[in-house]
Amino acid sequence: MTVRKNQAALTPEEKRAFTNALLELKRTGRYDRFVTTHNGFIMSDTDSGDRVGHRSPSFLPWHRRFLLEFEAALQAVDASVSIPYWDWTADRTTRSSLWAADFLGGTGRARDGQVMDGPFAYATGKWEVTVRVDGRNYLRRALGEGVAQLPTKAEVDAVLAMPVYDMAPWNSSSNGFRNNLEGWRGANLHNRVHVWVGGQMATGVSPNDPVFWMHHAFIDKLWADWQAKHPQSPYLPAAGTANVVDLRDTMRPWNDVTPADMLDHRRFYAFDAEPAAAASQR
């Protein structure tokens, strides 16, 4: 059984295995296909039209499925690897071990935002950004420049307390848990973290930065935490909603998986710290 761990608790060997698997997916071209898929949805998901991956109720099950597919690709390289999660309420400074040269490398240099250390620095020759929105082919970051502070534990807890999964009009203007977690409303959780990292993470081709997966693994964990707090609160909407993925509608691009299939993460993996209420409720 795959166990997703807090990145702060990884051993040096686990960090090395994870980064090596990323580099191998990059080398074979598999990695960049995930970036292309993500950007395609970023550009086509709209508030007034069809929306699947973002700004809609299926933001959470879509990314759960997307990460599962990515994790399976990593495990085809190294079966011991799982996607770590980055709890940015706890590891919230540029001095976190996450950004050390033995893991993801640090922020970009002032002149052009280029990441200069770690396994994903351009000079290694192993991490050229090929799926991009502009001419720059090197990984960039600007940690803490686009916005000063990452979300706090208190801000996360306030969103986890929201009892309703999502609400009409099921888009970026909705109230409810999903949109407050996604960040178009309220304190701004998920979106703000993308802006805080900067560089490609702030763009539609955000999966170019490996921290994308660790950010979304934590967002995914927060969904599990929310389910544990609100065991009677279902995914919404249930059926018959135009332009929106209802509970039993299939999701593009896979077309064979529904939000209902994604509700229980324990079919696929466990977290190192499972939400306490989950075991007793299900």
Binding site: N39, D47, S48, V133, P169, S172
Partner: peptide, 20 residues
């Protein structure tokens, strides 16, 4: 530049996708 308008009238682009 690929741009998009949010339901509340604000704007995003593919270059600044998570900031309105």
């Amino acid at each position: 530049l690929h741009v998009m308008q949010n339901a509340d009238g604000t704007w995003i682009s593919v270059v600044n996708h998570y900031e309105t």
